[in-house]
Nucleic acid binder design. Structure first.
Lengths: 181, 181
DNA sequence: GTTCACATGTAACAGGTTACATGATTGG
DNA sequence: CCAATCATGTAACCTGTTACATGTGAAC
């Protein structure tokens, strides 16, 4: 999926500026689709406008660039519906942490422990945050998405807790995964 | 993470040709790091050779291009160790399927059902496959990685099964998520 | 007889990123 | 006083993809 489709999707929930689209794309509800920087979003909105899929009205502000508020058009809705009708691409999951674990043989026990603990802490934060977000979210689609992410994070956190000891034995020079700890 | 580091990582497990690296990068043990096509791998190996991080020996073959077998050098191992020492970037999870669910309001119940069922089937296949791979894998790092992926897939599959009914109520025109089904 | 596995590579292109440019207001 | 938030945008760059180019041998 690309930034244009993301913009269309976000605008299908209501009007927004490029700045607001960027913020929403980082929101728990929308952060699982594509990463998008300002430099990707602004030109995307220009192109969408040229294609007639969104319209734009300027709102003047003092001391700031004009707000350019975008709305999805009927043509935009149609194009978006068509995009949704296509088979969704398979989920993509990429993890440098797993790469690290895969190469555990060439790491020290301490390095593995640090990576493991940081990751667990990271998931703790994520899970707490998502629980908050879920109670605050009143949109059913959003709740489904947040719940999905939550299920995933809780499962991997549990996996890390359960396999912490085994992971430490991946370390260089540790040839007896059954002994010690 | 980039293709160069992936190549270095794979070569740290043993010599390989570009062709073999590509195959390994799709293996259950290495598929969670970066996607890499031939057109990314071959030039990456050339650059790594120029930088002295890998070396290359040609093996002549009849009727086929020479096999170019790459080995990681000491400098390559050092560079790789350094790369592993850096903080791993946060995991990246991107899902067009979740985007679809997020936009459930503008889909038909049938469209949602189809997406849901396909996804569950997809996970079934993935889980079966990973279970096989895990029993066949004798490398502890690989087992950890496969186990992690397995935990994740099983959790999201279970989530989809549990929330199937709720997801169907995301559909356009379905305003009573508590009634029916 | 067609598809898959083997084996390498280039060229054109797409789709993003980072750094740069500009600048007021608010909160800690 | 410094950082963050608001607000838009361009230019140079990086990193990867798709399509192209070439060809054999084995399996189904």
């Amino acid at each position: 999926m690309n930034v244009k489709t993301l913009c269309l999707g976000i605008l299908s929930f209501g009007d927004a500026t490029g700045y607001e689209i960027k913020k929403m794309s980082q929101d728990d509800r929308f952060s699982h689709f594509v990463d998008a920087s300002f430099s990707a979003i602004y030109p995307a909105l220009v192109r969408l406008t040229k294609e007639g899929l969104v319209s734009c009205r300027r709102e003047k502000q003092s001391n700031r660039p004009d707000r350019k508020v975008y709305s999805i058009t009927d043509a935009g809705r149609a194009a978006f519906a068509e995009a949704l009708d296509a088979e969704p691409a398979p989920d993509k999951f990429k993890s440098e942490f797993l790469f690290l674990m895969m190469c555990g043989q060439m790491l020290s026990r301490e390095r593995i422990a640090r990576a493991l603990d940081e990751r667990i802490l990271h998931f703790d934060g994520k899970i707490t945050h998502l629980n908050d977000a879920k109670t605050q979210c009143d949109h059913p689609g959003g709740q489904f998405v947040i719940g999905y992410a939550l299920a995933m994070y809780e499962a991997v956190r549990a996996y890390l807790m359960e396999h912490r000891a085994a992971a430490l034995h991946l370390a260089a020079g540790d040839d007896l995964p059954d002994a010690a700890e």
